[in-house]
């Protein structure tokens, strides 16, 4: 599937997600055009993860419309297993806690989903896995178990695992938060390359420097809503919303 620049890869309209009587995301709309890197920042509990997880329906919003790669779903009306599979096929996701399968080797972690989801043969899948392991700098780790890898290595494997399914957009939920700073850097380096290769990315992050360097657009969330967005040069250096200023000051002080 090819997408011309300018088409939205992800389009969220009026997304609302409640947990009990707590509203985690209130009527958020977001368009992510092909090739764009969007960084979502904001204080803890502002709904960043929840919004991200609505994109691939790990969370089912109470209201709103989600369109991914031209496929629209209205989750409150019910989503069939086939629709869900189709939607998720185009969307890769990387979690804060890596979530590799610990009983499988690094290579199997990357190959198994290709076999099950895309129907690739084991040989095809392994070839693609090795190619991606090389790309994330872990060509020699295929036979290792995740428990034998550092956190930074595990996260790079998780990125390779998601990329192996040839997604059109990658979602990252604080991919470096669980890592020591040096290990975080090796993960960020992989993400920078990915962005440079033109991957569409939505990245929830506390790494302001990464957002400044790599993002085309920074989205600031507070209390479940987008309070400000724009190019990093504007949002990160000359924010107009008081709440953004306060948040950025707090992050810089750390």
């Amino acid at each position: 599937m090819t997408l011309t620049t300018g088409t939205s890869v992800v389009s969220l309209r009026g997304i609302r997600k409640e947990f009990g009587d707590h509203v985690a995301v209130r009527d958020v709309s977001l368009e992510v055009p092909a090739g764009e890197v969007v960084a979502i920042i904001g204080p803890s509990g502002s709904g960043k993860s929840t919004l991200l997880r609505c994109i691939n329906l790990l969370e089912r919003p109470e209201a709103g419309r989600i369109e991914v790669l031209g496929q629209a779903v209205e989750p409150q009306g019910g989503v069939s297993a086939a629709e869900l599979a189709k939607l998720r096929r185009g969307v890769g996701m990387v979690f804060q806690s890596f979530n590799l399968f610990p009983h499988l080797t690094v290579l199997r972690n990357i190959s198994l989903p290709q076999e099950r989801v895309l129907g690739r043969s084991r040989k095809e899948a392994d070839a693609r896995s090795l190619q991606l392991l090389e790309r994330v700098g872990l060509a020699d780790k295929g036979a290792s178990y995740p428990s034998r890898c550092s956190g930074g290595q595990q996260q790079r494997v998780a990125i390779a695992r998601a990329l192996a399914l040839d997604p059109q957009v990658m979602l990252f939920d604080e991919p470096t938060s669980a890592l020591d700073p040096e290990l975080g850097l090796e993960v960020l380096a992989v993400m920078r390359e990915l962005a440079a290769d033109g991957m569409t990315m939505v990245v929830v992050t506390h790494e302001i420097q990464f957002a400044a360097d790599v993002a085309d657009r920074v989205v600031v969330m507070a209390d479940g809503a987008i309070i400000e967005q724009g190019p990093p040069s504007v949002v990160l250096t000359a924010p107009t919303v008081e709440r953004t200023k306060k948040f950025l000051r707090a992050v810089m002080d750390r």
Partner: peptide
């Protein structure tokens, strides 16, 4: 988290 990862990868239940 692993079950979620499998779901996010598009693996069936």
């Amino acid at each position: 988290g692993e079950v979620e990862a499998a779901a996010a990868l598009g693996m069936s239940h």
